[in-house]
């Protein structure tokens, strides 16, 4: 009987970060890259991400961007100066989520250090 396994899985699901689990690992890494390289005064284009992130192939990056946009973690807008280009910016939800995760990682790192 695998009731113990079910209980363990239930506890894992209940204790996990559901917000971050809805996106796949590549999309997570892409979001982290966007957050690390984004500056409000400097526009970030889809093309810039495809060329520089190195997270995956261009086609996969486009898919990941669609996932992040669907989950409300990035905002994609058409550039007013050149309608062929699309501007990407992280949303407040993404900032809150990464800040929360970063705080958790710092707490863990501090605990390991002690």
């Amino acid at each position: 009987m695998k009731a113990w396994l079910n209980l363990r899985q239930l506890i894992d699901v209940v204790g996990s970060d559901a917000e971050y689990k809805v996106i796949d690992e590549r999309s997570q890494r892409l979001l982290e890259w966007i957050m690390a390289n984004y500056a409000p005064e400097k526009p970030m284009f889809v093309q810039t991400i495809v060329m520089n992130s190195g997270v995956a192939s261009p086609a996969t990056i486009h898919k990941c961007l669609a996932v992040l946009e669907r989950e409300g973690l990035i905002s994609v807008k058409v550039d007013a100066d050149d309608t062929r280009r699309r501007l990407v910016s992280p949303t407040d939800r993404a900032r809150r989520l990464l800040a929360k995760l970063s705080k958790q990682v710092q707490a863990w790192a501090a605990a390991m250090k002690d």
């Binding site: 506890i11 209940v14 204790g15 707490a107 863990w108 605990a111 390991m112 002690d114």
Partner: peptide, 19 residues
Amino acid sequence: FGLLRVFVRTVRQFKAFKN
């Protein structure tokens, strides 16, 4: 479920802190 979530996460943090 909320209480269980708080409990699980507290235990995890406590374990991480202890290790």
